[in-house]
């Protein structure tokens, strides 16, 4: 469902993403791991069509994001880093807007908005302007927006950032429940999150892909944070293994 081939992005002289290749199939939840500044968000921005790659390609459900962007974007739900939303709108108005853009109408629109509001627990703040919401609620508004049209491909940039432990737990449960019918990529720098929700893990550092395997494989190498440190601090050796 997601195909990334030799994706590379340069910002001036900085190579933020360096020849990254991977696929994600339906039913998979891919954890995109890496220290801050590793290039996770930049990869996602290229995959979702916000940034044009310096070289390489990305496609969603068989549609190239650059040449067939509209078709690709219809199949995609995306939570950008920091969960941006129109701060002067209420979650209700914002979701209405997204539903209109997504082509939902009438009863279907109403039902779908009610459904996602229930799924991410937005009932209490539905008619309060978004700029007055806590970080956790803002994140959930972003999540609601991303899953509103029940997309086949879901790209979530740090979906649990800013949530308290209970909320984190709920969002992870939500992601797991959606997993069977979708291809999901989520970025995180929380290692336990990978164990909790992901069927596969990828580690990148300084733009390079250093590990691609199951969380179990990662765990079998020893304590997770130690393995992570080893992989991300000695890229050349880990890349070979």
């Amino acid at each position: 469902m997601i195909e990334i081939k030799h994706l590379t992005k340069d910002f001036g002289s900085l190579r933020a993403v360096d020849d990254v290749t991977f696929n994600v199939r339906r039913g998979e939840v891919l954890g995109f791991l890496g220290p801050n500044g590793a290039g996770k968000s930049t990869t996602m921005k290229m995959l979702t069509g916000f940034l044009a790659p310096t070289s390489g390609t990305a496609s969603i459900a068989g549609h190239d994001i650059e040449n067939d962007g509209m078709a690709a974007k219809k199949k995609l739900g995306y939570l950008p880093e920091g969960a941006p939303a129109y701060s002067d709108m209420t979650p209700a108005a914002f979701l209405e807007f997204i539903a209109d853009i997504r082509g939902l109408t009438g009863d279907k629109k109403k039902a779908r908005i009610a459904e996602v509001v229930r799924l991410v627990h937005l009932e209490a703040v539905l008619h309060q302007s978004i700029d007055t919401l806590s970080k956790g609620f803002k994140r959930r508004v972003g999540l609601a927006q991303a899953i509103l049209h029940d997309p086949e491909v879901l790209v979530l940039d740090e979906p649990t950032d800013g949530l308290d432990p209970n909320q984190k737990h709920e969002v992870r449960a939500l992601i797991r429940s959606m997993a069977p019918n979708k291809a999901i990529v989520l970025s995180t720098h929380i290692l336990e999150e990978v164990e909790a929700v992901c069927t596969r893990a990828i580690i990148i550092a300084r733009g390079k892909l250093l590990f691609d395997g199951t969380p179990q494989e990662l765990l079998s190498r020893g304590p997770l944070d130690e393995v992570f440190r080893n992989i991300t601090s000695t890229p050349s050796r880990a890349a070979v293994s």
Partner: peptide, 14 residues
């Protein structure tokens, strides 16, 4: 400034 441009540009609108 608010980053919503990223949201907008990844929605299915030209």
């Amino acid at each position: 400034k608010s980053g919503t441009v990223e949201l907008l540009m990844t929605l299915p609108v030209t």
